[in-house]
Amino acid sequence: MSIQHFRVALIPFFAAFCLPVFAHPETLVKVKDAEDQLGARVGYIELDLNSGKILESFRPEERFPMMSTFKVLLCGAVLSRVDAGQEQLGRRIHYSQNDLVEYSPVTEKHLTDGMTVRELCSAAITMSDNTAANLLLTTIGGPKELTAFLHNMGDHVTRLDRWEPELNEAIPNDERDTTMPAAMATTLRKLLTGELLTLASRQQLIDWMEADKVAGPLLRSALPAGWFIADKSGAGERGSRGIIAALGPDGKPSRIVVIYTTGSQATMDERNRQIAEIGASLIKHW
């Protein structure tokens, strides 16, 4: 067993022997301040990774656009098919120029040779490549099948209805392509620590998230040296922004954090800054 596999296998073990965790309302004060600064709703939840206990939450059962955070769930569904012998990570998928959609920095470079399922998941999570996500959605049967996968996990809230990039439209009061912070946090925890996926697939999923290259201005910008984070960000229309993450000190994750916002007129930089400040408060009061 590799060191990384050992780390993920012992996530519940280490967490069980940690000192009790206590909620700190100071972080919620910052979440509410972010709402004021952005002029928009902000949803927040913080779960203990081992027990699933909610440590703090704000608007945990209000719907927010998922945006690209759905790509972690998508690759979880792909990995479940791999575990069941219905898919192979090494299978190569070929596609054409007509398949390319807006923001496809990886797939646009491989029109000639195609990409493997493993490479597509890596591109979808680490670079948020939209064509990679659409190609992977095709392998599982489309958005409705991802929703069905989530329902089978016990998540009857999260739903995907459309493809990239239309799913980022974020129309107010439109339930399409949305989740709730509580539902997303619980589902992410199941994917990373539950028995739904094999140990190898859980490790692969967290490795992809740990290698995320496009979430630097968010929670990662607030992390002290030595902290662990595996995350996936999302951005959408109407001032929408979000991030889902597993993080913790001492090089291992111990909490799940989900943050979503929508309806702001603020710039992307300002949305990023507010999420980073929430992260800084979380870490300060850990």
Rank of each mutant, 00 (worst) to 15 (best):
T147L: 10
E277R: 06
S80I: 14
G52H: 09
I278Q: 01
N134S: 07
D269V: 03
H24L: 08
G154R: 09
R159P: 00
E102L: 05
D212C: 15
Q204Y: 02
N134T: 10
P224E: 10
Y44Q: 01
L199N: 02
R273S: 13
N130H: 01
G90E: 10
I140T: 08
G263D: 10
G76T: 12
V101D: 10
G76W: 13
T116F: 13
A182V: 08
K213R: 04
L74A: 14
W163Q: 12
T262S: 09
L205A: 07
R91G: 12
G76R: 00
S128C: 00
S96P: 11
K232S: 01
G263R: 09
T131F: 04
I54Y: 12
P172Y: 09
V214D: 10
Q265C: 09
S80T: 08
R271T: 12
E175S: 11
R81T: 10
D250W: 02
G239H: 14
A84N: 10
I140S: 07
V106Q: 15
M67A: 12
A124T: 14
A132V: 01
D250L: 02
A222W: 02
E35D: 11
S254F: 13
T139C: 13
N168R: 11
E87Y: 12
H24S: 05
A185D: 00
T178C: 07
G43Q: 01
C121T: 07
K109M: 06
L282S: 07
P143N: 10
G236Y: 06
T107F: 14
I256G: 07
M153Y: 02
H94G: 05
A123I: 15
T27K: 14
S128E: 00
E210W: 11
M180C: 03
Q265D: 14
R220A: 08
A40V: 11
V106E: 15
A123M: 07
G43C: 06
Q204H: 07
P165V: 05
A230C: 07
G251L: 12
K252C: 08
T193M: 08
P25S: 06
E108S: 15
S96V: 12
E119K: 14
E87F: 11
G239W: 02
A148F: 03
V101F: 03
W163Y: 10
A222L: 09
F149P: 01
Y95A: 07
A124N: 06
I54D: 11
D129P: 00
K213L: 04
L150E: 14
S68A: 00
I259C: 02
S68N: 00
G85W: 09
R241G: 10
I93K: 15
A222T: 06
N50W: 08
S264R: 10
H24P: 02
A133Y: 01
G43D: 00
S264I: 04
R159L: 08
M67I: 08
I125D: 01
Q204P: 05
N98I: 06
G242T: 13
A225R: 11
L219K: 11
T138M: 14
Q265K: 06
L111T: 03
A276V: 13
H110G: 13
T27I: 08
I93Q: 15
I283N: 01
D83C: 02
L218R: 06
T158E: 01
I206A: 11
D207Q: 02
G242W: 00
E108V: 12
L146A: 06
D36G: 10
A246D: 11
A182F: 13
M268V: 11
Q88P: 12
R241I: 11
I259R: 00
G154Q: 10
M184T: 03
T187G: 14
E119M: 15
V157N: 11
G251W: 10
P253L: 04
I140N: 05
R92G: 11
M209R: 00
N173P: 09
H156G: 11
F228R: 15
D48G: 03
L135G: 07
E56L: 10
P224T: 04
M209I: 14
K109R: 05
